[in-house]
Design a protein around this nucleic acid. Structure first.
Lengths: 171, 171
DNA sequence: TGGCGACATGTCAAGGTTGGAATGTAGGCT
DNA sequence: AGCCTACATTCCAACCTTGACATGTCGCCA
């Protein structure tokens, strides 16, 4: 149900069409809450019906620009402060770790080395974003920076853990 | 689709009924891949139809004990080594961080303090598991230990990040 | 022997998610 | 004028997940 709130959050900044929002989801937000085109358009329609957003402008090619209503902003604030952030985290990576005993040790180490390498790569990508972005702007920059820092620390921890795990599997 | 592989992984250790597996999912595996009763029974039926598992014993109260077939073990190994671990991570926590600008700074700090506290609690729970468990046993213990270590490091990183983030939001 | 709690499975509706197909327009370039 | 790319939306089938409902049995203890 959080796709709705992600869309509301993006519309705080400025009005946008489904197509605009789709691009936001392909960009920075993809790391936090991926969503597909069909999902976004469907959800926008439902949100308009619920009067959390309204169509404020129509452009060429049937473009509809949506803007937040007061009710939408209220809903976003409510979600931010009142709803417990509680969805249990699934991790197919960790699930595999649990069952690494069914392959031989060398394959297990290989898998963990792959995880370390992948974490390293992701970390570098985030460093790239850190360097390329201007963090002076408004709220989205401020809080986006916090989210990025989370990613930086998390990928680093993940790499260290995987390297530790490789070492721990001794013959 | 990984529920299937989680079930296969548990059945490597020993044959079990749906009820037995349900308890595994309520226990240690809940942190990694939560699943409900209906999902488990449905999936077991489908897996039996696909001959990844077979009914090896029938107990009282209609209990059906499933065991891995060769095809099941092969499928598990295949998934472990060949299939890229790729489901994108959703995080409603980070999503909220992105949009913290819509509430005032004190509320934002309060939210982050809550995250730090929650991370601290989770960390302590994991420490409890670490201390209460015998890590000498077979593969499940060995690799379960790796998964636990991941959790320990992750919750610690998360707490540090949240504390850092609180400090960073200055008036 | 009566009842309770744990054992044990099956089914269903509702909603979220994925991925793809279908459809069409506007604007820029050649 | 014709073509291509980017813009822009809608619909759908399939699958996963959640949570609830339904059904029934076994074994122990009072």
């Amino acid at each position: 149900m959080s796709l709705r709130h992600a869309l509301l959050g993006l519309l705080v900044d400025k009005p946008a069409s489904g197509y605009d929002l789709l691009k936001d989801f392909a960009g920075s937000l993809a790391n936090v809450w991926p969503a597909t085109q069909s999902q976004i358009y469907t959800e926008l329609t439902k949100m308009a019906a619920a009067e959390l957003i309204t169509v404020t402008d129509a452009g060429p090619r049937g473009r509809k620009e949506y803007a937040l209503t007061d009710a939408g902003l209220a809903e976003l604030r409510h979600w931010l402060t009142e709803i417990p952030p509680n969805r249990p985290q699934r991790s197919d990576v960790l699930l595999r770790v649990f069952f690494l005993g069914v392959v031989d040790r060398e394959q297990a180490r290989e898998y963990l080395r792959g995880l370390a390498e992948k974490a390293r790569q992701e970390h570098e990508e985030l460093v790239g974003i850190l360097e390329r972005t201007d963090w002076e702007g408004g709220d989205l920059a401020t809080y986006g920076r916090l989210a990025l820092e989370y990613g930086l620390r998390f990928t680093d921890t993940r790499r260290e853990w995987a390297e530790w795990a490789v070492d721990r599997i001794r013959t």
